[in-house]
Design a protein around this nucleic acid. Structure first.
Length: 455
RNA sequence: GACCCGUUCGUCUAGUGGUUAGGACACCGCCCUUUCACGGCGGUAACACGGGUUCGAGUCCCGUACGGGUCGCCA
């Protein structure tokens, strides 16, 4: 097996936060590399010095790390094909520019340098989109002027270096892919129409181009182009919004790729194992935030209780919730794990157990207060619970409530809603008996009394 | 405007000439349950349109419409 090793890359430009679309492109590259036992390269395309910021660079790195997309070569990691910042590769670009000049394929134009585009059909055979043929010289001889709303004469030859000596994306990109030995260029479909230019450049260097794999774009729920301000656009939103990275990867993997069977929940390991280029779609998809949230809940449920607690505790601490003991906190978290969609919901779901400062749903309280015989029912419940003294266990609480109900000739169910509303301030929540047990007798009686006082 | 890509339930998708067009999210109903959730069962809901080819078309071809992309000394 001397198949050429797969080498793919993610090449972000550090001009803003990591976008979910960029994250998906990175994910597909990473998955393909891992699936094929290849190499995933991270290259930072920072040729536009005016727009680059260190914050943006860090945001991209941290976003990728959070998602679990580790790179084999790249900035801060090194590798045999560095440097991995385009800003540090100027000598290489100069060298490749010279090759073009020596071959008579580059010329100066008002201080810039242009690449002489070939006047012949170029065929791109895209792995996803199929093949298409264009003639760059012909097509580029006219361009659309959005102001005049008409086509005007144009120089089809590509500018590859600006008068200030910096290089244009198309050129740097191709030289890097060539010198870094990239075998598959997996990128957004917005680059499909640029690909013939890139092919022409590869050819000018006498090189075999990599395989091109253009993946469909992700749009907003309404079909518009996703931009920075849209819900779900920034990876940071997920990092801070109670999402699990594996859930986000799972969701975005499915936006444009399918395993071809009915499985929807995948671990990262399964994704690596199952991901193939053949499974990539041709059509754009819309981002469905609610399905993403659902998927997060699915991954949350699959966590061990300990794993869930570990991830939830930072949110609990941040909300200032103090549990009497770690054990009790773990017990409380175990109660809410299966009903949590986002980790950010955890504090509000357990807050009333440990603190008297918790939100109250007035509608639920007045609904409970308005029930027939509620006063007698809650009073009876209160008295039976008060008798428990030291025997404050789930079982004893259960028995006390059932006894209270039968003493009034009621079904236990009739007591549950008023009890929940009175003690938690909510209409719904985790299983009530264990909640009462964790809350402690004192707190439960206090709240029942406070509720009775309002009747 | 030119060129390129695309179009199956509201959304994500399966489907590669013969299917009651399948699954998932969302939504609705029922069941389970002390409530909610989970789970289970069921329901509403799709082949953009028009022509071909074919015994037969969601699947192949052409056109139209719609959506997206490219046409930068941005990436």
């Amino acid at each position: 097996m001397s198949e050429t090793q797969v080498r793919v890359r993610f090449a972000p430009s550090p001009t803003g936060m990591l976008h979910i679309g960029g994250a998906r492109t990175a994910l597909y590259n990473w998955l393909y590399a891992r699936h094929m036992g290849g190499t995933f390269v991270l290259r930072v395309e920072d040729t536009d010095e005016a727009r680059n910021t260190p914050e943006a660079r860090e945001a991209i790195f941290s976003g990728l790390r959070w998602l679990g997309l580790d790179w084999d070569e790249g900035p801060d990691k090194g590798g045999d094909f560095g440097p991995y910042f385009q800003s540090e590769r100027k000598d290489i670009y100069a060298q490749y520019l010279k090759k073009l000049e020596d071959a008579g394929l580059a010329y100066e134009d008002e201080g810039a340098v242009r690449f002489r585009v070939p006047d012949k059909p170029i065929t791109v055979d895209d792995v996803v989109c199929g093949s298409q043929t264009v003639n760059l010289a012909e097509q580029g001889s006219r361009k659309w002027d959005p102001e005049q709303k008409k086509e005007v004469e144009a120089n089809p030859d590509l500018v590859i270096r600006r008068p200030d000596g910096t290089y244009i994306f198309h050129f740097a990109n191709v030289v890097d892919d060539l010198t870094m030995g990239i075998t598959h260029v997996i990128r957004g479909e917005d680059h499909l129409s640029n690909t013939p230019k890139h092919m022409a450049l590869f050819e000018a260097f006498g090189a075999t181009p990599p395989r091109f794999v253009h993946i469909p774009l992700n749009l907003n729920a309404d079909g518009s182009k996703m931009s920075k301000r849209d819900q779900g656009a920034a990876v940071a939103e997920y990092m801070n919004g109670g999402f699990l990275p594996q859930a986000v990867c799972n969701y975005i993997a499915l936006l444009g790729w399918s395993s071809k069977d009915d499985q929807e929940i995948f671990t990262m390991a399964e994704l690596k194992e199952r991901f193939t280029l053949e499974g990539v779609n041709r059509s754009n998809s819309r981002f469905d935030f609610s399905k993403c949230v659902w998927m997060n809940a699915e991954h949350l449920r699959r966590l061990t209780p300990g794993g869930f607690a570990e991830l939830a505790i930072p949110y609990v601490e941040k909300a200032g919730i103090q549990a009497e003991s770690e054990e009790r906190l773990h017990d409380a978290l175990a109660l809410v794990q299966e009903r949590t969609q986002l980790l950010t919901e955890v504090p509000e779901k357990i807050g009333y157990i440990f603190s008297d400062d918790y939100p109250k749903d007035e509608a639920a309280l007045s609904k409970a207060a308005g029930r027939d015989g509620v006063k007698e029912a809650v009073t009876a419940m209160r008295d039976f619970l008060a008798k428990l003294e030291d025997a404050w266990t789930g079982e004893a609480i259960h028995d006390a409530i059932f006894e209270a109900a039968s003493s009034l000739g009621l079904k236990p169910g009739a007591l549950m809603f008023p009890c929940r509303a009175a003690t938690t301030g909510q209409a719904s929540g985790a299983e009530l008996m264990p909640v009462l047990e964790l809350m402690g007798q004192k707190r439960v009686l206090q709240r029942l009394d406070a509720f009775l006082a309002t009747l």
